[in-house]
Amino acid sequence: MSASDQPSLSLGASFFRQFLRHGKALAASPADLLNPLLFFFMVVTLFPLGLGPDPERLSQMAPGILWVVALLASLMVSGKLFASDFEDGSLEQLCLAQHPLAILALAEVLAHWLGTGFLLALVSPVFALMVGLPIQALPVLVISLLLGSLCLTLIGAVGSALTVSIRRGGLLLSLIIIPLHVPVLIFGSTAVVEATRDGNAVSWLALLAALVLASLALAPLAIGAALRISLDNG
């Protein structure tokens, strides 16, 4: 049965396979896809209730509100990223794959991002109008959330990999990840603020893009190491 002439799986095939597997598992439970959107929707409505309905004040704070809520939504979702893989033993098998664990884990993180952060960014204009964000700032908001959510998901994945073997690790995940989210929040919300004032949002988006590239390059290394450590602790 095990003829050795057959070509073994290439890295690309394994990468796509892992991406598809996580995507299908995520798509199979629509709750996981809807939860972040509903969370975003509900928490955004809290701000006018807390700060008062005055549209002038709300629209002035809109970029900050939208970005903080997007960050919290990403945080809430990051906890579940590797949880199911850890429980059903897929993580163990991932360590045995021929290809580096960091790359395969990156495939899972990207699939997870598509299902959560990406959708959030596309739907965010609806929430933006609720808090009175000027129309001309909407494109920058969507771009900043697209870039930002990828960065937040990658950093959140590092936290998730570190805390996956701890039983009630959710709170701990927030504690160790929020400080790392600060630059993303600053660059993202400032870009949208500049867009509302017709300032140069592009330079802030460029900084955000730089963070995304850095995270794409470095986060997988930390994720791979953290997953192996969590397995030893499990």
């Binding site: 057959q6 070509p7 073994s8 892992q18 897929s90 045995l96 794959a97």
Partner: peptide, 10 residues
Amino acid sequence: LRLHPACDMP
């Protein structure tokens, strides 16, 4: 089985 993480052959 098709997408198994430790799958090592097409």
